[in-house]
């Protein structure tokens, strides 16, 4: 397929790629995610039971405790962090967590990503120039 390029705002530098894991629920990294496994452990969360390791995690925004920034760092150190993240609108917890953990993060995508991106799509995230590329389906 021809890659689809979506302009975004750059929040955390770097580039990353992987298969999309899409959530319409905000994520509180403190509490929703197990830092030892990368698995979403909150039964009420849309991604309950799924592992975020090496994915491009697409979610509207972060929420909850500011300690969530350190949970992202812990996930990275443990090898269970997402390869990159895409937000509708980033807030400080996820933005800071992404920066200290070297996880590329972009937000404010130029089109409706919930229409365009499905679980399993292969995505490239460029956090330096600020765009996403959908390069294929699995």
């Amino acid at each position: 397929m021809i890659p689809i390029k979506i302009q975004c705002r750059s929040i955390s530098k770097g580039t990353g790629e992987g298969t999309a894991l899409v959530s319409r629920d905000p994520i509180s990294f403190l509490g929703n995610v197990d830092p030892e496994t990368g698995i979403i452990v909150d039964p009420d969360h849309e991604l309950y039971g799924k592992c975020i390791k090496d994915t491009v995690l697409v979610f509207p925004s972060g929420k909850g405790s500011t300690v969530g920034s350190y949970v992202l760092y812990q996930l990275k150190k443990n090898g269970f962090a997402p390869a990159a993240m895409v937000n509708l609108e980033s807030e400080p917890i996820v933005a800071v967590g992404a920066i200290i953990s070297d996880i590329p993060l972009v937000d404010r995508p130029g089109i409706d990503i919930y229409e365009t991106i499905k679980d399993g799509d292969f995505l490239k995230v460029n956090g330096i120039e600020g765009y996403i590329e959908i390069t294929g389906n699995i």
Binding site: V67, Y70, Q74
Partner: peptide, 16 residues
């Protein structure tokens, strides 16, 4: 600077 109690930031915060 916040993020001081080990009870809140844990090993991840210490490491960073």
């Amino acid at each position: 600077v916040a993020g001081v109690s080990y009870k809140t930031i844990g090993d991840a915060g210490l490491e960073w």
